[in-house]
Structure formats: structure tokens, C-alpha cells
Amino acid sequence: MFLVKMCILNGFTLAALLFIVASGLTLSFSLMRVVNLSHGAFYLAGGFVGLSVLNASGSWLLAIGVAGIAIAVLALVEERFFLRWARGNDLIETLVSLSIAIIIGDLVLVIWGGYPKTIKIPEMLSGAVEIPILVVYYPVYRLFMLAMALVLGGGLWLFLKKTNLGITIRAGVDNFNMVAALGFNVKRIFTMVFALSGFLAGAAGVVGGTLMMLVVGEDWRILTLTLIVIIIGGLGSLIGTAVGALITGLAYSFATAYIPEFSLFILFLPVAVILSIRPQGLFGKEAA
């Protein structure tokens, strides 16, 4: 019984992390229709930048902020100077983002080395508390991650629903050519969304690096999990991303606890089932 409870809780907290990583990718993917394969590398680089900032300053919050901003700048450069030239050619765009992922991975290896590192849990969030109904002790930090994902989800929802930029992004997801025909500079919107997506990935790297280890290779594992989340949830849907993250998080958590040798199979099972029933994902819109 204890293991089941732990699996559920761990599944939820992994889902929280996946949601933080995937929400950024969902935004850029739905708007530009191209999967940014460097998103996993953004996560890893963000984690290491955060680690260095933490070592230098001792502030975990500062680490999150600086990592987010550093990766936002990296994303901005990728979009502005590389992806923009390839726009409209899906294959080239995908290859560009793949190349950048590999380059970032190598740079991380050169700068921070190949040994696994972890970010120390901040004093305030260390230790464990008892969860009333489940009667188990659970790390405070993991609960904090859960809260963070909820706040981020709510914030993004409000941003998309209420702000002018949010409405522009939603319209652009539907048809960015028509947004341009109304006089909006879509290229600039693409760059902003890409930078925002980079910010979320970089910040997620610090959040995730505090829970799990940071090491080259982790970038691809996170990218794979994130892509599964997005495929399950569907294009252009924040709720889909949340549900996709929950399914993926729980499946991964139970599979690694009970049948680790089949964990990849268990992970891709929902993908196969959902894609065969709803090719556009659980909450995705049908192609226009």
C-alpha cells in the first residue's frame, strides 16, 4: 500500500515537472508548428546555469531567474538567427533545432563536465511533512513543485485568456497568416513566444535539477518525456498538456517501481492507444 501511495505522489510530482517543461514547448509548437528538439537541451543548460548561479550566490530563487533569462536569450538567438531563415521548411527547421540541441549538449559537457550533479534543495524547502489523508511522510520540495506547476498553469491560462499578447498567440495558433493580414508582426510574436518557451525550459532545469540529477543524456530523456506529454495532450491545449503530463508522470512512476524492464513500453502504450483513437491528441483541435 505504501508503494502505491508513493507511486501516486511521485507520479504527480514528476507530472508537475513535466508540465513546467512541456508548457513552454506546447506554446512554441502550437504557434510555429515545428517541434523544437533543443527544448531538452534548454532544460539541461538551464539546470547547469542555475547550479553555477547557486554556487556563486547561494540563492535558489536567483538561480531560477538567471537560468530562465539565460535560456530565454539562447532561445531568442536560435529563433532569430537560425530558425527564421528556415521557416516554412519543416524538415530544415527540425534539423536546425536538432543540431542546436547537440551543440548545446556538447557545450554543457565542456563547461560543466560529464559527472552527474544535483542542485541542493533550499533550506526552506528541505525535510518532509506528513500528508494528512494518505498518512505518509513526503518531501516538502516535491510538494512545492506541485504547487509551482499549479500556479504556472493558472498563470499561463490567465495570460492566454486575458492579455493582448495571449489573445494574439491564440489567434496565431489558429492561423498566423490571417494574424499578419490584420497588421500584426507575426515574426516578432514568434520570437517572443520562443523566448518565453526557453525561459520556462531553463527555469524548469533548475526545478528539475533540484529533484533529479543533472547530467548529459538527461536532456534527451526529458525531451522524450515532454514529447510524449504533448502527443498525448494534443496541439495547442494547455489542459491537454496538464492531462498528458499526469498520464505520463503516473505511467512512468508506476512502471519504474513495478516493472522497470517494461518502463518504456508502458510509457509509449498510452501514446499508441490515444493516437489510434484520437490522432490529434486528447485535447488537440482537428487540423483546419
Partner: peptide
Amino acid sequence: HRVAALGLGYVPQGRLLFPSLTVEEHLRF
């Protein structure tokens, strides 16, 4: 977007509305 901003309005064939936006959001936007 530059041409459009010079003062062109476009009512395209097939309308190309934004399904994710309400009527009011279309107009405010």
C-alpha cells in the same frame, strides 16, 4: 503585416476566422 498596416482590410474566401477566439475577442484583437 506591413502592407496590411498601410490600410488594407481582408475578408478572405472561407473567412479564416479564429476558432479559439470569441466574437468579441476577434473584434477587440
